[in-house]
Amino acid sequence: MWRRSRALGTGVLLAGAALRGVLASPWAAGLRRTNFRGRTVTLAAGPALAAGAAVGGALGAPSRPAGAAALVAGLSCGAVGLYDDVVGARPEQKTAKGFAGHLAALRQGRVTSGIVKIAGVGAAGLAAAALLAADPTVRAHPGRRRPYRRAGRRQARSGPVAGTLDVLLGAGVIAGTANLVNLLDLRPGRALKAGLLLGAPLLPGPTGGLAAGPVGAAAALLPADLDERVMLGDSGANALGALLGVALAARTGPVGRAGALAVIAALTAASEKVSFTQVIQNTRGLRELDALGRRHS
């Protein structure tokens, strides 16, 4: 309990302090953007969330390898997301849209900021999943909420193929969740609300501290996001999703990870065909939740 409380408090306090620090920095002017309603907002919330959520998650982790996984996932995804936020705003970068557009540009010999982000998020997910796999105390026995300390011996008996598959599934969950939260960052507060809803069920149990850091940071920045003073951008949305992916991967085995990855993949594929914003607007309950707390003028 104390570990979760420490992580939650750190996420809240550090995200707020980091936001003030970014706003006071010399490069704050370069983070100003125009949102969907034509208002001038700042992307400063992105690096602020990445810092607060990653450090909070690391402090709440049940072990050093799990804490390292949180730092790697949160800070790396936040950094490459910030790179895409800044470099991707340049005119020559705007021609590539979506995953297919970035791949097409790569085939033409152009390395876009989006490709850098995709590669960086994937590498961070793989590194974080490998750190989790190296720590038997973070793996949960199916159906229980306490660490399963013999998981390392079980994995050793299952062979390197099963261990590699587990790492790849974990990497897919971490990177996929990072991308999925980013897909929701189209309206004020939407990605943060999704992060809170996803993070809350991950708080119980020995790995709950990993989720407490990002939950605290998201809660701290939500009022400013809803008021359209800040926005997460790729930096904050990718970091939030990646850290929640770490928390999810840490409490599930191969079957759970495979199931989570299937859901993430299905939602990601659906986003290529339908507009999440349109679905939310046409669905009672989702529409009210999405608009809750948001300014109307």
Rank of each mutant, 00 (worst) to 15 (best):
A100P: 01
G285L: 14
K94H: 05
R153C: 00
D84Y: 14
R251H: 05
K117T: 01
L82Y: 02
A140C: 15
T95M: 13
E228Y: 09
W2T: 15
A124R: 06
S275W: 11
V111W: 11
R187I: 04
A17H: 04
A70Y: 10
L23V: 08
N35G: 07
G233H: 04
T10P: 01
S25P: 05
A79V: 08
R157H: 10
G78R: 05
A218P: 08
A266C: 11
G125S: 10
P26F: 09
A96Y: 03
P223S: 07
R37L: 14
E92R: 15
G176C: 11
D185T: 09
A237R: 09
R150F: 09
A249S: 15
R284P: 13
P147N: 01
D135Q: 11
D290V: 09
L132I: 06
G16D: 00
G125N: 04
P91M: 11
A130Q: 10
P254W: 13
A262F: 10
R107Q: 13
P91G: 08
D290C: 12
A44G: 12
E92S: 09
G209S: 08
Q155S: 13
N35E: 04
H141R: 15
A178E: 01
V87E: 05
G216C: 07
A291I: 04
V230W: 06
G74W: 06
R139S: 09
V138S: 12
G81I: 04
L202W: 00
G114E: 00
Y83G: 02
L203T: 04
G52I: 02
T95G: 13
G60A: 08
V138F: 05
L226W: 06
E288W: 15
G101Q: 12
A61Y: 05
A175I: 05
E228V: 08
A194K: 06
N35L: 03
P254R: 14
R107F: 15
R149L: 10
N182I: 06
G256V: 06
Q278L: 14
W2E: 14
A247V: 02
V255W: 13
A133R: 15
V72A: 14
